[in-house]
């Protein structure tokens, strides 16, 4: 049960049940869709990008607890951040959820996003945790194609 609790921490379950910024963003100037064919998770990220700064961000979609909580917590973290800061966070986040923190221990502090460290014990769930971030990157790049985790 302990590693399960590590995966399904209270904060993750909370964001799953009450996702933050879970809406269509009026006035978004960037959107992207993400799809995880393995579990059928679908997510849309909405961005308001002014220059290099994410002034507002929201998401919609269906997914498992991990993917939904990850998207929710990502949006709360990224509001007001620059594109470069978002990229650096994703890099660190990805290393942590794949159990490769030691590869580059520097980089930004994950803060609350540390709760996803437990995902590294569940390799098939890494895609769930990173779907929102891949979709964010697609939105930042301005592409209109659906990104897939496959």
């Amino acid at each position: 049960m302990s590693d399960l609790r590590e995966l399904y921490q209270e904060v993750i379950l909370d964001h799953h049940k009450n996702p933050r910024n879970f809406r269509i963003l009026e006035g978004a100037n960037r959107t992207a869709e993400g799809y995880n064919p393995l579990c059928g998770d679908r997510i849309t990220i909405y961005l308001q990008l002014q220059g290099d700064v994410i002034t507002d961000i929201s998401f919609q979609g269906v997914g498992c607890a991990i993917s939904k909580a990850s998207a929710s917590m990502m949006t709360t973290r990224l509001k007001g951040k620059t594109r470069a800061e978002a990229e650096a966070l994703f890099g660190k986040f990805h290393r942590v959820v794949t159990g490769q923190r030691d590869l580059a221990p520097d980089g930004p502090e994950l803060g609350k996003l540390e709760v996803f460290a437990g995902v590294s014990e569940f390799p098939v769930r890494v895609k769930c945790a990173s779907l929102a971030w891949h979709t964010l990157r697609a939105a930042l790049d301005g592409g209109s194609q659906t990104v897939s985790t496959e």
Partner: peptide, 9 residues
């Protein structure tokens, strides 16, 4: 609860 979470548990 998403089926994937059911499956993992």
């Amino acid at each position: 609860v998403h089926p994937h979470d059911v499956g993992t548990i």
